[in-house]
Structures are given as structure tokens and as C-alpha cells.
Design a protein around this nucleic acid. Structure first.
Lengths: 168, 168
DNA sequence: AGTAACTTTCAAAAAGTTTTGAAAATTCGA
DNA sequence: TCGAATTTTCAAAACTTTTTGAAAGTTACT
């Protein structure tokens, strides 16, 4: 397979993949493009390569910067801004996990704490099922929360090397 | 907080939560409703409680059944079908992981295998960056794949007791 | 300060996804 | 076998999200 074709495949698949992971298609495609580009790119480079509008490009670059996945690079002697993506995939994964944890898991756990305090007689089947369900989710959620916190601080080795222990 | 209000909150939040996880709002709401209902429910019960149309209810129940999260229950002497959700949250998590791994991770790894074989001189910066990126993602993806396979077979204890140690 | 290069915003349009509801298909009891 | 009850399907409508592009805003060079 030729590089041009492979790059296109990668970008388009990464885009489709992204949509299943709370990252919109264009954002994921820009990210993919920057991941496989050795040099930083300008907005215009990106617009041209992906055939997307200026506004769209701008907004999605901004989102990528907010997620910490992309950074602005100022090249000496250049008027335009350049952008480049974090290339270390383990760091990328951790940034995504961190961001989604903050946006989704943390608020959910807060809500579950409140819902657990529903009033009523626990011998009522409806109350009991409700509390049991909420508590069960909360228990697992808290565990996931801790595990992810450890992960966010961990080195890649701990993920790749540590798994051996699991098979013992 | 009263049960009725708490149930509504739970259902609506679970629905919003679901949309971030590749599960559509209604599907997640039906799931939430069944999770907090001690008894199996009919389609009509669900339609009424969530104020959704017959077709929508039917399609989403079917999806939930395909994911393995809900099962059809035939009650003796009843003409209608009843539905009930898997209540063990650890099993629920494993079912979701299993399904998403099959739909998303597995195909992505297959694609990366192909893309790694791009032709060209590896001293070309573009080729090198492309291969390095793809290989890096593949490496981590394969690792995640293995870890998730272990998880899918594991008991809840493994997660609660063991996984954290992995990272320490 | 003026101006050209560049970046950001945002209302409207397009695209994508979900929901509806009525019609078709199926099931089951008499 | 018939027909009422129930489930399934799917085209069109409603809704949601993303994208566009032109205008407004900013920056930095002369």
C-alpha cells in the first residue's frame, strides 16, 4: 500500500473511530492528520488536506488544544501559527481518559451519592431495588475512578509490563 | 428525595450518560428503567413510563437484547412478553466491554496491521512518522485487547481487589 | 496610525441520528 | 382456520449535531 492511500485510510478510520468515543469526526481526523505528520502544520494546510472549512478547522483545533492533544507552535520568522500533536500514544490515551473522567464519571458519581439517599421503607421492593442498583453502580464507579487515577499517573511500562502478573 | 423523583433523575441521567458511550438515549433509558424495576415489564409499561412510541420502544428493546443486557421473560398465563434487565452491574460492564471491543477495537487492530505494511523508504520522514504512529497505536491496542479479554472472563473481585495492584 | 495577514465567531444550512405511527407480519387461543 | 392480540418494520418527520462562510476581531509589521 502506498503512503498517500494509507494516510487517507488512517485518517478516515480514526475519524469514524472517534465518533464512537465522544470525539467528533473532524476533531479526530485533524488529530489523525497531525499524528502522522512529521512537521507542525498550519490551519490552511489542514483545511486543504482534509477539505474542510476555515471555521470548522479552527473550532476543532481549539477543542484538541483544550483536550491537551494538540499544541500551538510558533516557528521563528513565521507569521502563521503551527500545530502539532502529542505523538506518545500512551500520553494521548491518558489525556483522553483524564478528560472523559472529568466530564462523565465524576458528575455521575456525584449524582449517585444523592440518589442513594432516597427516602422510604427499605422493605418496599421498589425502594430496595432502586437503592441496590444505585449502590452497585456507585461501588463499581468508585473503583473505576480510583483505577483510572492510578492509570493517569502511571508510566506505560506499568500497563504493558504489569499485565504479566495477571496470568500468574 | 422521593422515590419517583429519584427514579426519574436516574433514568434521565443514565440516558444522557449513555449517549457518551455509544448507546442511544432511549436505549439507555429503557435499560435504566428495567434496572430499577423489581418486576419484569411489558412493552406497554415501558412506553407509558417513558412516553415513547411503540416502534421506538420495540427497536431499542431489541438492541438491548442483542447486547445481552435485557432478556425476554415469558410469564405463565400471560399473552404479552415481559422484559427484565441483568441486575449484576459487573456483568453489565463486562457485556458492554465485550460488545464494544468486538465492534470497535477488533476492526481497528485489523486495519492497523494492514497500514503498518506501507511501502517506501523508512528513511523518508513521512513514512517513518506514519509507521511509528501506527505501530505505537497497535502496540497499545493489542495490550488493551489482552487486558480486556482477561477482564471479560474475570470475577468482580479481580477488578476490585487486583487491578489496582497492577499499576502500583 | 494604517493596513494586510491572520484568527475567531456565529447564524444559517447541511448532514446525521432518532423517533413516530400506521401498516404489515406474526402469534396464539378458540 | 379465523381473528384478535401482539410484535415488527420502515418511510417520513422531528430533532440534534456538525459544518460552512462571511463578517468581525485581533495582531504585528511598516
Amino acid at each position: 500500500m502506498k503512503l498517500t492511500e494509507a494516510r487517507q485510510q488512517f485518517i478516515s478510520s480514526w475519524g469514524a473511530f472517534g465518533t464512537h468515543w465522544g470525539i467528533n469526526r473532524t476533531m479526530a481526523q485533524i488529530h489523525a492528520l497531525l499524528l502522522v505528520s512529521p512537521e507542525p502544520m498550519t490551519q490552511d494546510d489542514i483545511m486543504e488536506e482534509l477539505n474542510i472549512s476555515r471555521g470548522n478547522t479552527n473550532m476543532n483545533i481549539r477543542d484538541l488544544i483544550n483536550w491537551g492533544l494538540v499544541e500551538r507552535v510558533i516557528l521563528p520568522g513565521e507569521r502563521k501559527e503551527f500545530f502539532s500533536a502529542e505523538k506518545d500514544i500512551w500520553k494521548v490515551v491518558k489525556l483522553i481518559v483524564k478528560e472523559r473522567k472529568k466530564r462523565e464519571l465524576d458528575p455521575m458519581l456525584k449524582l449517585l451519592d444523592q440518589l442513594e439517599n432516597v427516602e422510604g421503607d427499605k422493605r418496599d421492593k421498589n425502594i430496595k431495588t432502586f437503592i441496590d442498583t444505585v449502590s452497585g453502580i456507585k461501588r463499581l464507579g468508585k473503583q473505576a475512578d480510583k483505577t483510572l487515577d492510578v492509570m493517569i499517573k502511571a508510566e506505560e511500562n506499568w500497563f504493558v509490563g504489569g499485565l504479566v502478573k495477571l496470568f500468574k
